[in-house]
């Protein structure tokens, strides 16, 4: 385990004088249901990309990609997809 600073060493009030710290904190382990994309059904409408609150839907050259490092499995993408191209499958 790496060294964690004691209370005297931390900036007051928990202010972080840098940005992007959330990138170091991967939330994918919170997931109970995993969104699985059926690339054949996807019409590239990008509604999932718009609605994802994380955002864990990445735009790519062809369709979209789900970032499982951060996706919490909320299922909004599956609910919004007009062609049912995303299935929520229980994590094991």
């Amino acid at each position: 385990m790496s060294h964690k600073p004691g209370w005297r060493e931390l900036p007051i009030g928990g202010h972080l004088y840098e940005t992007g710290s959330s990138l170091k904190y991967k939330t994918g382990s919170w997931r109970t249901f995993r969104p699985i994309l059926d690339r054949a059904k996807c019409t590239r409408c990008l509604l999932c990309w718009i609605y994802c609150p994380e955002p864990s839907i990445k735009r790519t050259e062809d369709v979209v990609e789900i970032d499982y490092d951060f996706c919490k499995g909320c299922g909004i993408c599956a609910a919004e997809c007009p062609v049912k191209a995303i299935q929520m499958v229980e994590e094991r």
Binding site: P5, G6, W7, I12, G14, H15, T19, S21
Partner: peptide, 27 residues
């Protein structure tokens, strides 16, 4: 105490899990 500048953003009120919260209360 610090400058609020859009070109040099800072994070205020970030989440703290059990690994850090206690230290801030002690402080």
């Amino acid at each position: 105490s610090y400058i609020v500048d859009p070109d040099r953003p800072i994070t205020i009120g970030a989440g703290n899990n059990p690994e850090y919260y206690f230290e801030f209360k002690r402080q």
